[in-house]
Computed example of a mutant assay.
Amino acid sequence: MNLLQNKFSIEDAMAKLWNKLDGWLDALILNLPNIVMAILIMTAFYFIARGLSRFFKNVLLKRISQVSIREIISKMIFIVVLLVGFFISTGVLGLDRLLTGVLAGAGVIGLAIGLALQGTLSDTFSGVVLSFLPHIRINDYIESDDIKGFVAEINLRNIMIHRTDGNYVIIPNSKFTEKPFLNYSLSSRSRISVGCGVGYESDLQQVEDLVTRVIAENFEQRTGEGIEFYFTEFGDSSINFVTRFWVDMTRTREEYGARHKAIKLIRQHFKENNINIPFPIRTLDFAKNDLRIDRDKNREGP
Rank of each mutant, 00 (worst) to 15 (best):
233 E>A: 09
234 F>I: 04
234 F>K: 10
234 F>D: 08
234 F>L: 06
234 F>T: 05
235 G>F: 06
235 G>N: 10
235 G>S: 07
235 G>I: 08
235 G>W: 08
235 G>T: 09
235 G>K: 14
235 G>M: 09
236 D>R: 05
236 D>V: 12
236 D>T: 12
236 D>S: 12
237 S>T: 14
237 S>N: 04
237 S>A: 07
237 S>Q: 04
237 S>M: 03
237 S>R: 07
237 S>P: 02
237 S>C: 06
238 S>W: 02
238 S>C: 08
238 S>D: 14
238 S>V: 03
238 S>N: 09
239 I>R: 12
239 I>L: 13
239 I>E: 11
239 I>Q: 12
240 N>I: 01
240 N>V: 01
240 N>Q: 09
242 V>K: 06
242 V>Y: 07
242 V>R: 07
243 T>W: 06
243 T>K: 03
243 T>P: 12
244 R>A: 14
244 R>E: 15
244 R>F: 06
244 R>C: 07
245 F>I: 02
245 F>A: 03
245 F>C: 05
245 F>N: 01
245 F>Y: 14
245 F>Q: 01
246 W>R: 02
246 W>D: 01
247 V>G: 00
247 V>R: 00
247 V>E: 00
247 V>Y: 00
247 V>Q: 00
247 V>D: 00
247 V>I: 15
248 D>G: 07
248 D>M: 07
248 D>I: 07
248 D>C: 06
248 D>E: 13
249 M>D: 00
249 M>I: 09
249 M>P: 01
249 M>F: 01
249 M>C: 15
249 M>A: 14
249 M>L: 15
249 M>G: 01
250 T>Y: 09
250 T>G: 07
250 T>A: 10
250 T>C: 11
250 T>S: 11
250 T>P: 05
250 T>K: 07
251 R>G: 06
251 R>S: 10
251 R>F: 08
252 T>R: 10
252 T>N: 07
252 T>F: 09
252 T>I: 12
253 R>N: 05
253 R>F: 04
253 R>G: 02
253 R>E: 13
253 R>C: 01
253 R>L: 06
254 E>C: 12
254 E>L: 14
254 E>S: 14
255 E>Q: 14
255 E>H: 08
255 E>N: 11
255 E>W: 04
255 E>M: 14
255 E>Y: 09
255 E>I: 14
255 E>R: 11
256 Y>M: 08
256 Y>N: 10
256 Y>K: 13
257 G>L: 12
257 G>H: 06
257 G>P: 02
257 G>K: 05
258 A>N: 07
258 A>Y: 05
258 A>C: 08
259 R>C: 01
259 R>E: 01
259 R>H: 01
259 R>S: 01
259 R>M: 04
259 R>N: 02
260 H>W: 14
260 H>Y: 15
260 H>G: 13
260 H>N: 15
261 K>E: 13
261 K>W: 04
261 K>G: 03
261 K>F: 09
261 K>T: 06
261 K>R: 15
261 K>M: 13
261 K>A: 13
262 A>C: 10
262 A>V: 03
262 A>N: 01
263 I>E: 12
263 I>K: 09
263 I>A: 08
263 I>F: 08
263 I>R: 08
263 I>P: 04
264 K>Q: 13
264 K>V: 03
264 K>N: 13
264 K>H: 11
